[in-house]
């Protein structure tokens, strides 16, 4: 252990620093929460769109598929920078958090569209047929039959995705979003030992991610009961 670290500890463990880190951690949480909520809504819409039939919606279906396939192949950092620079073209100042949230949402929409697609596909086609012959519309079939059966398949991976994004949003620090990693860098720049700053940041990520992982596992067991529950 390098010199001075032990002596630094009292100076590092202040209410001020703790509050600074915790506030940043809440932004990390908020960023992934926004991404997951937008992702499940927009991604869900794309997944549903891809289930439609008929040529009228064919171009939109194609766009949806393209979006999902392409955005899952671009690194988050690149999407982030693209959003960062693209929003600056408009000439007005967008809050950094909003830039982070847009980038997270763009990516999460693609991933969650895929998760919802798999969930919809897990519902047997005969359920659609049964509904069709009783004159259910597309939307009625989704609402009354398919979604009630698919949500328990969607929930565990979607939750896992939320936890994954908790960590991936660390990259938002690169465009200046004051989330947890950025806060760690800031403290590092203020002269605290990196063992302390990044160590604390790692521990805080762990403190968010690990309990949620355990919760996710409980959730999985809970919803893995028969289809109808």
């Amino acid at each position: 252990m390098p010199h001075g670290v032990i002596e630094q500890i009292p100076r590092f463990l202040t209410w001020y620093n703790a509050a600074f880190l915790l506030r940043a951690a809440s932004f990390t949480l908020a960023l992934s929460a926004v991404g997951s909520v937008v992702g499940i809504l927009a991604g869900g819409a794309i997944a549903v769109l891809r289930r439609t039939r008929g040529w009228a919606l064919a171009p939109l279906r194609g766009l949806g598929t393209l979006y999902v396939e392409l955005f899952r192949r671009i690194p988050f950092l690149v999407t982030l920078l693209l959003v960062f620079y693209a929003t600056q073209l408009g000439g007005y100042d967008m809050p950094l958090f909003a830039i982070g949230a847009i980038a997270v949402s763009l990516i999460s929409t693609a991933y969650l569209a895929e998760i919802v697609r798999a969930g919809l596909a897990s519902v047997h086609p005969n359920q659609w047929h049964s509904a069709a012959v009783a004159n259910f519309s597309f939307m009625q079939t989704l609402r009354l039959v398919v979604i009630p059966q698919a949500w328990s398949v969607v929930l565990p991976p979607a939750f896992g995705f939320f936890i994954m994004f908790l960590k991936d949003t660390a990259l938002a620090s690169q465009v200046g979003v004051v989330e947890l990693t950025y806060a760690g860098k800031t403290l590092n720049n203020r002269g605290f030992a990196p063992v302390l700053t990044f160590g604390a940041v790692l521990l805080l990520y762990f403190a968010m991610s690990y309990p949620l992982t355990l919760l996710g596992r409980r959730l999985e067991v809970l919803v893995a009961r028969p289809r109808h529950r």
Binding site: N126, Q127, A134, N135, F136, V145, Q149
Partner: peptide
């Protein structure tokens, strides 16, 4: 039509399966 594999709605009870189309559709 009644299918070979029954194709009941898995998320509904027997009674709900019978009622859903007349009521909701």
């Amino acid at each position: 039509i009644v299918f070979q594999q029954y194709n009941l709605f898995q998320n509904m009870t027997a009674l709900e399966n019978v009622m859903v189309a007349p009521v909701r559709i």
